[in-house]
Design a protein around this nucleic acid. Structure first.
Length: 583
RNA sequence: GUCCCGUUCGUCUAGUGGUUAGGACUCCAGAUUUUCAUUCUGGCAACAGGGGUUCGACUCCCCUACGGGAUGCCA
């Protein structure tokens, strides 16, 4: 336990980092900070065909926005430089040769076509393993001369792991405890591709070893390939010092019933999901197409019905199967990059523009989330402190985090909870800290931009009633501009002749006030109401109408106090003169 | 198909053999605010099913069902 903890976050720059990746980075960060360990950012770009320009920079920027910092990495250097796997090809080459020499790996010359043919022949269950490898074109089945000839002629080849035939691989996982796999179910995975670059498996093991990684904290999707990694450590003679494994439960798509809570997007989403499915299965039978389509249309009509509809009494052959296919691809399963914001909420920390298509996917930052709120919510998706604590600062998370309190089962993402965290954080944030964020949301030339003092007061009044940062901008209008129109229903209700008279009277009393403040305005109002023996509402409702034109918002005296004497009186005059009373 | 992992309110979860099964989000109701929001109070709501083990199972074991992941010269 005295050993210094060394961790890494190792994303692949194949697109923007999504929230699941952010959470993995966060857990690594929390554990590193807590133990005084080292956190490394390594870029795993061994698949040159899937590289997306700008993705690595996005990853760095997004993590910086989240407040997740590293001790070593591509962007800052360190003792194990380079931290980009594509720049470490020679290292992997050397270790691959070592594996071949020790008999743990072999050369394979099978072409993609030959592999396809083999899969064709044996059905989908073909596995390149101890049973089939002698039938394939490789250095185990071919004579040494044949292999040498192929190499000499420049024929491309890969290097495969020679998985032992009949062994049980047992390893410990901090979350899942003991996990067992049998080698008879494993295949001879490619370690080195024909382009000379390694696959994830080899590069990962070599780098983790060379960088002295003590704990591998990664998503559960890696659990099935962990036995291969263990075999690799064993082959290199590193098994005794290999890192401890921590496989995190996956973040799953939200409950379908919750996806369309936001009614405005319901119809849109329904159409989108339907189009998506139909486009993905163009050859689908017309009858099933229309059935699935109508299922999708009905899908969001009520909250509880999803489960019940999964097994509808419909004997149409294959209908059930396709329904399942649809649900799995569209609404269930792990949250993926492909989900983009198609489900109506962001899955990325920041906006991302696809360099190829130009399409933009929404990010939490631009949607108006505070990074602390985003991270706090994420931290609790798959981990909890063991008590009722929920609002936790980064420092508190560092203090409370522990690997053995990570859950085992996948967590469905819940947008409402994320929203609640954001509201809570906005309310707890100082107005001064909110100021620059709010200003960034305002259009050029907006009058609020020139008056920090007043904007601060507006933020104070609005902060109890917004969920996202942009809400400040959209709700701040009447503080800076007289209402251009008046809410019709409110006019009907509260702009009778007598109400108009009260506003005129109140205007005169307010005009003669020595000091203009929320308190003095309120006092003058109280005095008038008492004198005239009328209800507060008879004056308050029309006052709000006159000042804001809207049926809801902060207190009328607060608003008048902020907008000032001149503007308040002008708005009262304007309404009295221009707005016709209702009978 | 095969292998692996999982399964407590709609969702996130607490719970490690004896609990009125607790909290949070959502939703509903009431109070406060003569607006809206906030805040406060209360309410609805769960141990997937079946077998064991045990004096006693949400907790331990097995089976089934369901969910998830993996099965690429992707990570």
């Amino acid at each position: 336990m005295s050993e210094k903890v060394v961790l890494r976050f190792a994303p692949s720059p194949t697109g923007p980092l999504h929230m699941g990746g952010v959470r993995t980075a966060l857990y690594n960060y929390l554990f590193a900070k807590q133990t005084g360990g080292t956190l490394i950012l390594r870029i795993e770009d061994t698949d040159q065909t899937r590289l997306v320009p700008g993705a690595d920079q996005y990853i760095i920027d997004a993590l910086a926005w989240c407040g997740i910092t590293f001790d070593e990495g591509v962007h800052i250097g360190g003792p194990s430089v380079p931290y980009r796997q594509s720049e470490r090809a020679a290292i992997y080459q050397k270790y691959t040769e070592q594996l071949i020499a020790s008999g743990h790996a072999y050369l394979a010359f099978d072409t993609a076509e030959e592999l396809d043919a083999a899969r064709e022949k044996q059905g989908a269950h073909f596995s390149y393993n101890y049973q089939t490898r002698m039938d394939m074109q490789n250095s185990l089945s071919l004579s040494a001369e044949a292999v040498a000839a192929k190499k000499a002629s420049g024929e491309p080849y890969v290097v495969r792991m020679k998985v032992p035939e009949d062994e049980e691989v047992v390893f410990q996982d901090i979350v899942r405890e003991e996990v067992r796999f049998h080698t008879s179910q494993m295949d001879d995975k490619v370690l080195m591709k024909s382009d000379g670059l390694p696959t994830y498996h080899l590069a990962n093991i070599v780098d983790d070893h060379l960088m002295g990684i003590t704990h591998v904290i990664r998503g559960e999707e890696w659990l099935p390939s962990t036995p291969l990694h263990v075999l690799l450590y064993r082959a290199f003679g590193w098994e005794a010092i290999m890192p401890k494994f921590v496989h995190l439960p996956l973040i799953l798509k939200p409950d379908p019933a919750l996806v369309t809570r936001n009614k405005g997007t319901r119809r849109e989403l329904t159409d989108k999901l339907s189009d998506e499915f139909m486009a993905a299965h163009p050859a689908l039978d017309q009858k099933i197409r229309s059935k699935v389509h109508s299922f999708i249309q009905q899908l969001f009509s009520d909250r509880q019905g999803i489960q019940g509809r999964l097994n509808p009494k419909d004997n149409e052959p294959n209908y059930q199967k396709w329904l399942k296919t649809f649900l799995k691809g569209a609404l269930f399963g792990k949250l993926s990059k492909r989900d983009g914001d198609r489900l109506g909420f962001p899955v990325f920390p920041m906006d991302w523009q696809d360099p190829k298509t130009g399409d933009t996917s929404a990010g939490y930052r631009e949607a108006g989330y505070l990074p602390q709120a985003f991270l706090n919510a994420l931290a609790l998706l798959g981990w909890n402190p063991g008590n009722d604590e929920e609002i936790m600062s980064m420092d508190r998370l560092v203090e409370a985090f522990s690997l053995d309190r990570i859950s085992k089962s996948g967590a469905r993402f819940d947008q409402d909870k994320m929203k609640w965290f954001n509201q809570t954080y906005i309310r707890a944030t100082a107005n001064e800290a909110l100021l620059p964020l709010v200003k960034a949301e305002l259009a050029d030339g907006h009058p609020a931009l020139a008056d920090d003092e007043k904007l601060l007061q507006v933020i104070e009044l609005l902060k109890e009633r917004v969920s996202y940062i942009p809400d400040f901008a959209s709700q701040a209008g009447f503080f800076f501009q007289a209402p251009a129109s008046y809410d019709e229903r409110m006019v009907q209700k509260s702009w009778k002749a007598e109400n108009k008279g009260y506003i005129s009277t109140l205007r005169e009393r307010w005009a003669s006030l020595d000091t203009w403040s929320t308190a003095t305005l309120h006092d003058a109002f109280e005095a008038m109401v008492a004198e005239k023996e009328i209800s507060n509402g008879a004056v308050l409702a029309p006052l709000r109408l006159v000042l804001t034109g809207k049926p809801a918002g902060p207190g009328a005296f607060d608003i008048a106090g902020v907008i000032g004497r001149e503007e308040t009186l002008a708005r009262m005059d304007k309404a009295v003169n221009d707005l016709a009373v209702v009978e």
